[in-house]
């Protein structure tokens, strides 16, 4: 059995977002790039499953669609413990384009994991699109994943609760918080070994994009906070009622 984790390369979650060229382009100056947090958790869980499988899960791979500048992120995934990696050497375009590229790699796997969203463009689309292109079942908002023999048991989050779902293989799991407790940190040995692991660079296949960013905007600056004295909480509640009309 083989697991593929799709990882996207995103700005560190504390990045101050800025745009340039008339707000048409995201300004990457000074940005630290990381593995999208959900993808990092998915990878951690995939490795835990492999280690607990007694050899049944032979391999955990990672795949990323992106140019050469995203290689440190892939190396990090290898250092965390992925066995090998694929990079489709192209600009990510849009979610439809990315899913089309990933499909070529994913079709050889039994389980494909994606994150619920990339923290950059936040589309929440690639995992679902990929599953439809593969004509595989998908389970989304996965917060727990167990595999026993050929049985896949998934906990998924729904509004106001959770469901336990089973799925046939192959399938696409779209994961969120809970799938692993903490992301695995690469150890020194992992970092050394990562240099020797295969990183396959693939040419993109012909595909379209269906969407395009025209430009970006920052939210209008917020008015300064109105402070109320701690001795006068009632004034706050009155403001909430009469001015903000929030209660």
């Amino acid at each position: 059995m083989k697991i593929l984790v799709c990882i996207s390369n995103v700005p560190d979650t504390t990045t101050k977002i800025k745009f340039k060229e008339d707000n048409k382009v995201f300004d990457t100056t000074g940005v630290q790039w990381i593995i999208n947090p959900w993808d990092e958790l998915a990878l951690t869980r995939a490795l835990e499953l492999k280690e607990g499988s007694g050899g049944k899960i032979e391999k955990v791979s990672v795949a990323l669609v992106g140019d050469k500048s995203s290689e440190p992120t892939i190396r990090k995934a290898l250092a965390i413990g992925a066995d090998d990696a694929f990079r489709v050497d192209t600009d990510p375009g849009d979610s439809f384009y990315v899913a089309t590229q990933l499909k070529e790699i994913a079709k050889d796997y039994d389980i494909v994991l994606c994150g619920i969203e990339s923290s950059d463009y936040t589309s929440s689309a690639v995992g679902g699109m990929l599953s439809e292109m593969l004509e595989w079942p998908s389970v989304s908002s996965v917060s727990r994943l167990n595999i026993e023999g050929d049985d896949v048991s998934i906990r998924r989050e729904i509004d106001g609760g959770q469901e336990i779902v089973s799925s046939q293989m192959p399938f696409v799991g779209i994961v969120q918080k809970g799938i692993a407790l903490e992301p695995r940190i690469p150890a020194m040995r992992g970092i050394m070994m990562a240099r020797k692991k295969p990183l396959n660079v693939l040419e993109p296949i012909e595909a379209e994009t269906l969407t395009e960013y025209e430009n970006f905007e920052m939210p209008p600056p917020k008015a300064a906070v109105k402070l109320v004295d701690e001795e006068n909480v009632k004034e706050l509640v009155e403001l909430l009622k009469n001015e903000a009309k929030a209660i």
Binding site: A125, G128, M129, S131, E132, S141, R156, I158, L210, T211
Partner: peptide
């Protein structure tokens, strides 16, 4: 949760940008 689970699949079926 539901929209994110279903909309991308529909978008592929209809070849619709999302």
């Amino acid at each position: 949760f539901t929209g994110k689970a279903v909309a991308p699949r529909v978008s592929v079926k209809l070849k619709a940008g999302l």
